[in-house]
Amino acid sequence: MSEYISDVIGGSKSLLVGLSITAREFFKPVVTEQYPWVVPEMTERFRGHIELIRDEKTGKPKCIVCGMCMRSCPSGCISLAGKKPEGEKKKALTKYHLDFTTCSLCGTCIESCNFGAIQFSNEYNLASTRKEDYIFDLLKRLEEQG
């Protein structure tokens, strides 16, 4: 019987405490952001898809087309090609495609690059209903940024 009474009294009290807590929360300011209207700022290390880095001196990508990133990628989502232009020692990048549908943003490619030619971008606003939209031409992207 005493258990019954303590259940009723203690139970009612706990219910009232609950109500008072949610009532207090009701009058506190909201903590969410209205996403498309308020755009969050990405941190420096945010891992968006990878991007090529420009060599400040030449204005061309730092990439020397060694293909290390392509080989190290666990999901094989990088494909690149390059050819040696006339009269130059180094190969120049002609194609750098990233298949973002299989990329897992692990950073293996960036670590494998001995020349610091790729980095994570801050791109997070990626949404599409078509698969082809996720095959990025990074070389073109670099030129457009130019």
Binding site: T43, R45, F46, R47, S104, L105
Partner: peptide, 11 residues
């Protein structure tokens, strides 16, 4: 996210 760069599937 600040240190690892990701929010859920960290590597």
């Amino acid at each position: 996210e600040r240190i690892t760069g990701s929010r859920l599937t960290y590597c």
